[in-house]
Nucleic acid binder design. Structure first.
Length: 373
RNA sequence: GGGUAGGUGGCCGAGUGGUUAAUGGCAGCAGACUGUAAAUCUGCCACGCAACGCGUUGCGGUGGUUCGAAUCCACCCCUGCCCA
């Protein structure tokens, strides 16, 4: 079953152009996957997400397990049908919640015990049941449960955590009963040696792809790029590489340059909800007073519904009066921006001009143009 | 005209002798957000300045009591409600 899932079709340096294919979707890579944690990309109709062009989105096992429950989703015909998203879905396992809800969980070799952030009730996540939950969802790509360690974790802690994460990954592989794809997750904290060990250990398993976890968790960007650069060379060339939770446009460019194929991040959707628009000239905080009388679109030349129809002045107004259309229109734009970024990245790789594109993009993105009134 | 309640920083509204340039909330200004406990969180918000400190003015007005008043007293001005 591995033959058609992923293929690298072109390269420019270490940057790769590829195709990721399952019966449900076909994605050109590098690809960005919007995040829909609770079976919805917040504020977006599935139709709008599809219209922008995204072939695959992310959802989350921990959150869907708590509400509405994997049994319910299974009975409702699976996650795709439940949320009316017919393209690809990658589900995270709850590994990130091992990190983000660290005060509400405890880890043992057997698995992770969570106290629900909703009602305090106790729940146990094991490699086996996390696969079972994701099989109930019917997600196209599943993640194993893993421990995402904080950036300041010691070498010895990460070393022992890594062994557990690896054993969990192989137990997930064993527990799998469907042809849904399962990735291995490379961890190793900020230690290059451990990253290498992690990748080399996991490549022994029959994983469909490799996630890179535990980055962008509070470390500096430079460190993240360094660690990433010490990781990707050890991941099999012919398997997709997914940098979990990243990222910002500059991070994505740096990661693509280091051979990453897949990304997801809440940044475009979350910042949209708080009034920050991503543009080629950097971020725009729409509530800033300079936009009060601006009849300009958020981003000139953007073909998204928001930019095609609304002025900065109007968008600012929506945010000032706290109307829900504001976050919705902002999310549409930010996702369209991310989609366009990825498309441009792919084109530049195809034309063997990735580095030129990257340099040009970053120069413009980081040197905020004077905001036009 | 009589009675009564009240006048606090852009607005609402705490505070009724001393950690008070004055709690809160709203509005305003700015910032953050990276496998989503986020339509959330943080900072600023009298005026002036050589400004992480100093100075000035300050709780309707004017006087007064007091070591010290937004807080107590006197008079005045204004507003709401009730009765004529």
């Amino acid at each position: 079953m591995e033959n058609n899932f992923f293929s690298v079709i072109d390269r420019d340096g270490d940057a790769r152009l590829g195709i990721l294919k399952t019966p449900r979707f076909c994605a050109d890579t590098p690809v960005f996957m919007p995040v829909g944690t609770q079976a919805t990309v917040k504020g977006m109709l599935p139709r709008d997400v599809a219209d922008i062009g995204f072939p695959i989105i992310l959802s989350n096992t921990y959150h869907l397990y708590l509400r509405p429950g994997h049994e319910l989703i299974r009975k409702m015909g699976g996650l795709h049908r439940f949320m009316d998203w017919r393209r690809g879905i990658l589900t995270d396992s709850g590994g990130f919640q091992v990190f983000s809800l660290k005060d509400l969980r405890s880890i043992s070799d057997e698995g992770v015990t969570f106290k629900s952030h909703i009602d305090g009730s106790s729940h146990f996540f094991s490699p086996e049941n996390v696969i079972m939950f994701q099989e109930s969802f019917g997600s196209d790509i599943m993640m194993p449960i893993d421990e995402c360690v904080p950036p300041d974790a010691s070498f010895s802690y990460v070393e022992s955590s890594l062994k557990r994460t690896h054993s969990w990954a192989f137990r997930c592989l064993k527990a799998k009963t469907t042809d849904q794809r399962l990735f291995g997750i490379v961890q190793g904290g900020m230690y290059g040696d451990l990253r290498k060990i992690s990748a080399e250990t996991l490549r022994e398993g029959n994983f469909s792809g490799f996630s890179i976890g535990g980055l962008s968790v509070g470390e500096s960007k430079e460190l993240m790029y360094d660690v990433l650069g010490l990781t990707t060379p050890h991941i099999p060339f012919d398997k997709p590489r997914y940098l979990m939770g990243v990222g910002a446009p500059d991070d994505i460019l740096e990661a693509v340059e280091r051979g990453v194929d897949m990304f997801d991040c809440v940044l475009p959707t979350r910042t949209a909800r708080t009034g920050t628009f991503l543009t080629a000239d950097g971020k725009i905080v729409i509530k800033n007073a300079v936009h009060k009388y601006s009849a300009e679109p958020v981003e000139a030349g953007c073909d998204c519904y928001t930019c095609a129809n609304f002025t900065r002045s109007y968008l600012r107004h929506l945010f000032m009066v706290d109307e829900m259309l504001g976050p919705q229109l902002a999310t549409i734009h930010n996702l369209a921006f991310m989609y366009r970024l990825m498309k441009n990245i792919r084109t530049s790789i195809e034309q063997k001009k990735f580095r030129v594109f990257k340099a040009g993009f970053l120069e413009r993105y980081n040197n905020k143009a004077v905001i036009k009134q």
